[in-house]
């Protein structure tokens, strides 16, 4: 992998809006073809981070690079696809026309075939001529996802791309993300849907109040629930214990003369970890 720059490399990134410090030194990388979920409560700084990576917002200090190029530069923007959390497309453009416009802007050579394929992928294959102004919110979001995927970007940044989608749409997006990963596209996904993130992401980064509070694979993060043993004297909780330590714990308890009735390995869900780390706010 040497020589291939990370799809996204963020170092000690800080952003101040007046007196409000939205990012307080964030480090984050998204490797080539990696699917990273960015989690955090409202106002944590997730969108700010993504906007800096897209060059929409200027950082106060620190660096952000997309495929090795400084965020906001033309080569960086050439390598990325982006869907904002609050976006609008011109209501007078038809779905196909919008994609055509963005194809021109990214200099995509995909032509009509690419547009057709993407509209199919997001479930708008039937309505290429429908104008944006006549689409439902979820349809616009689907179109936004298709728009972000034009021109085969190396890095896709999706800021809450499924907030308006129906359950089927969410699953479509999940499948889409998996397809993209298999094609080597890196994805940074902002979402409040923990189950969604848990299902598809290789890695999860949690930020709260502008700082990274946890990072790792979903199963790593959601481990460490400890072990609960029901004995004749009641339920005993071994908070730090793991599955591997179970035989030893049982041996010791039996040696102490306890009757063991039930053993449970506790696995806190990503949600528990999240609520614990960000303080349930």
């Amino acid at each position: 992998m040497a020589g291939v720059p990370d799809a996204l490399a963020v170092e000690d990134l800080r952003k101040r809006y007046g007196a409000n410090e939205a990012l307080k030194g964030v480090d984050l990388t998204v490797g080539e073809g990696e699917l990273v979920g960015l989690l955090g409560p409202n106002g944590a700084g997730k969108s700010t981070l993504v906007k800096i990576a897209c060059g929409l917002v200027q950082q106060t200090s620190g660096s952000a690079a997309v495929a090795g190029a400084p965020a906001g530069s033309l080569p960086a923007n050439r390598s990325l696809g982006y869907l904002a959390e609050l976006f609008r497309f011109p209501d007078w453009l038809a779905a196909d026309e919008l994609l055509q416009l963005h194809q021109k802007l990214v200099e995509s050579r995909g032509g009509a075939a690419e547009r057709r394929e993407l509209l199919e992928l997001v479930g708008l294959g039937e309505v290429p001529d429908r104008r944006v102004g006549q689409m439902s919110k979820g349809m616009q979001q689907r179109l936004g996802i298709a728009q972000a995927m034009l021109g085969e970007p190396k890095l896709l940044m999706l800021d809450e791309p499924t907030s308006a989608l129906d359950p089927a749409g969410r699953r479509t997006v999940r499948e889409l993300l998996e397809t993209l990963r298999s094609r080597g596209v890196a994805v940074l996904l902002n979402s409040h849907l923990l189950s969604e993130v848990e299902l598809v992401c290789d890695r999860v980064v949690m930020i709260a109040r502008g700082e990274v509070v946890a990072a790792g694979a979903p199963e790593e993060l959601s481990r460490a629930g400890g072990v609960e043993v029901t004995t004749g004297r009641g339920v005993r909780h071994f908070a730090q214990a793991t599955r591997e330590e179970l035989p030893r714990i049982v041996r010791e308890l039996v040696a102490e003369g306890e009757d063991v009735y039930e053993i449970r390995v506790l696995r806190s869900s990503l949600e528990d970890v999240y609520l614990e780390l960000v303080g349930g706010r």
């Binding site: 897209c54 060059g55 929409l56 982006y82 802007l105 990214v106 936004g144």
Partner: peptide, 14 residues
């Protein structure tokens, strides 16, 4: 402010 500009500006445009 209406969110119309951002999709264009993130394109390699300047």
């Amino acid at each position: 402010e209406r969110g119309l500009l951002q999709p264009l500006i993130v394109r390699p445009l300047g």
